[in-house]
Every structure is written in structure tokens, then in C-alpha cells.
Design a protein around this nucleic acid. Structure first.
Length: 112
DNA sequence: CCGGTGACTACTA
DNA sequence: GTAGTAGCCACCG
């Protein structure tokens, strides 16, 4: 696994239920050049992973997937924004490495 | 080989 | 507060 595609799919697949990441987050965690590339990867291989746990920087899903993605997220108990048009990123955003006070979970080791 | 194409973002008006 | 635009760069045809 060296390709960007592999890394992105691998990471997305590790997002826990009820949690989400923005395209920008995934891009950074996978060393993808830009968030657009994350979208590119998911567009081609999204069917293999939990693509619905990846959304825009403001917590709203992409237009064509809006309905289904919101449904899936809600079904998993993801904290939704009051408006219901997206998720509450501040609560739903997955933090691969827990904040200070806890050790990183070796089981969730990333790449670098 | 080369240009079009995005499941994006941040910035400006 | 919303709407439009420029930059982004690997991948596929």
C-alpha cells in the first residue's frame, strides 16, 4: 500500500461508526495533495468503503449524495447539526489521536 | 502524450 | 448573511 488510493480507502475504512472526517482531514491524514483528490478516490472506489463518513469542511455532504449520506449518518447515530442539513462537526469529527491525557491507540496506527 | 475533470476549500464581493 | 471564483493536481481517456 503506497498509492494514495490505498491510503485514503484504508483510512476511510477505519473511521468509527458515528464519526466523520472532512475531505480536508482525510487529505491531510493520507498526505493527499488536496481534498479534491480524496473526492476523486471516493468517486472511483467509494463503493468499497464507508464513504458516507466523509463530508465537506462545513459538515454538509456533497449535493448528489446529500439525501442518502444524511440518512446513513443519522442511522449510525452521528451527531447531526440542529438544521439537520449536515452533521455537527465539532462533535462528530473523528480524532485519530485522542487529545492530551490519553495515549494513542496502537491499534489505530496510521501511516507515518 | 495532453487536456478535461472533479464526492473540495478558502477567499472576495 | 449568501453567491461567485480561482487554485488545486492525480487520474483516465
Amino acid at each position: 500500500m503506497d498509492s494514495l488510493v490505498e491510503r485514503v480507502l484504508s483510512l476511510v475504512d477505519r473511521i468509527p461508526d458515528g464519526r466523520v472526517l472532512s475531505y480536508g482531514d482525510v487529505a491531510e491524514l493520507t498526505a493527499a495533495p488536496t481534498p479534491r483528490h480524496v473526492g476523486q478516490v471516493l468517486a472511483r472506489h467509494g463503493n468499497e468503503v464507508a464513504w458516507w463518513r466523509v463530508l465537506r469542511a462545513d459538515g454538509t455532504p456533497a449535493p448528489h449524495l446529500r439525501d442518502q449520506q444524511l440518512a446513513l449518518l443519522r442511522a449510525e447515530g452521528t451527531p447531526m447539526a440542529p438544521s439537520g442539513e449536515g452533521v455537527d462537526l465539532h462533535r462528530a469529527r473523528w480524532e485519530p489521536y485522542p487529545s492530551v491525557g490519553r495515549e494513542p491507540d496502537p491499534q489505530q496506527s496510521l501511516f507515518e
